[in-house]
């Protein structure tokens, strides 16, 4: 378990019989067998096989990822406003103008981006934290079999299986001021508020968005943690039990210890996904959300498709990408240190 990580250390490929020599650490072409013909030909079918296999994927990757990223990078350096969208070759060069416009925090644009960044960080921390705690608690409780366990497991996964818009739009109905369930409970049922509050505009919008996102995200945490706990061998617990360890001690010392690598991967995945969340604010509030719920991706979306300033939008998405690369890099460093210490 602890030897293999997500990255999957490349294993030596043995393409034929008898090539069972210890493979060199750095990659060499697979067909370069010792004892083969001394004069290496540039092209052999055996050596070409892996390249032919990945060829369709390479072509698609170029078309859908590599070229768009290069284009997007270039777009961030031109003034791609509404006048130039259909003939972008005419758009004037902007240099670093889009970047400085995004990052000058004394203007309204820059201020909005900074605020949006803060909102996204707060949103991510809350959603990932609560989803993880919910998922971990449910997985722990459902690890031991009892009546109704299968049913609960299926029930908890429904919000994950549901198409995102179906779930979010139901929440939008619940959060309506005049005919929603929430205000019915809070105002008419419990009488907490005299005046029905608005949940989808103003500062309340942030809280609404967090709750809806947790509702959709936590089942994934639950699914992964549950799958991870299943891979812990039963006899470890039995041995601990014979030694007189309580359930809580077993959870603390066995489950949490064994789950550490899974937790690390899960938290990274949840963080990256939550940080780029778009569906929740878009379905709840539309393309122009209240300031309190203006997440980065929807901010970029609005800059591009509402204000028609694709140059600025591209500069902001390049900055977002750099930030995500930074986060993943820091995660990799911390994780390496944790693995070394453990």
């Amino acid at each position: 378990m602890e030897t293999s990580t997500v990255g999957q250390a490349p294993r030596p490929a043995r393409t034929g019989s008898g090539a069972n020599t210890p493979a060199p650490k750095r990659s060499r072409p697979a067909a370069g067998k010792p004892g083969g013909p001394t004069k290496k030909r540039w092209f052999t079918w055996t050596r070409a096989t892996p390249y032919l296999l990945i060829l369709p994927a390479v072509i698609m990757e170029l078309l859908i990822h590599v070229i768009p990223m290069i284009v997007g990078f270039w777009m961030s350096f031109i003034e791609l406003t509404q006048f130039y969208i259909t003939n972008w070759s005419e758009a004037p060069f902007a240099g670093l103008g889009n970047y400085s416009a995004s990052l000058s925090f004394d203007t309204s644009q820059g201020k909005q981006l900074l605020q949006s960044f803060g909102t996204t960080i707060g949103f991510t921390i809350l959603v990932v934290g609560v989803s993880f705690i919910f998922g971990m608690s449910a997985a722990l409780v459902l690890q031991r079999s009892f009546r109704g366990r299968g049913l609960l497991r299926t029930l908890f996964l429904i919000p994950y299986a549901l198409p995102a818009y179906a779930g979010i739009i139901t929440w939008k109905f619940i959060l309506q001021r005049d005919n929603g369930l929430l205000n019915e409970v809070l105002v008419n049922g419990l009488g907490i508020f005299d005046e029905a509050p608005f949940w989808l505009i103003g500062d309340n919008a942030f809280g609404s968005m967090v709750v809806v996102a947790i509702w959709q995200q936590w089942p994934f945490a639950f699914l992964m943690l549950m799958a991870g706990m299943q891979s812990i061998p039963e006899d470890v617990y039995q041995a601990a039990e014979i030694d007189g360890a309580s359930i809580w001690q077993q959870i603390r010392h066995i489950t949490f210890g064994m789950m550490r690598p899974i937790n690390a991967v899960l938290i990274l995945l949840l963080t990256l996904w939550t940080f780029r969340e778009f569906n929740t604010p878009f379905v709840l509030f539309g393309a122009v959300p209240p300031d309190s719920a203006n997440l980065l991706t929807i901010n970029i979306y609005g800059r591009s498709f509402i204000n028609w300033n694709f140059g600025l939008g591209s500069a902001m998405s390049v900055l977002l990408m750099l930030f995500l690369v930074l986060v993943s890099g820091v995660w990799a460093l911390i994780n390496r240190k944790v693995n070394r210490d453990a």
Binding site: I85, S304, F310, L324
Partner: peptide, 16 residues
Amino acid sequence: TQMFPGVLFLLPLFII
């Protein structure tokens, strides 16, 4: 590419 937000690819693909 899996970890990048979709909007990163949406803008250039839309323009293209």
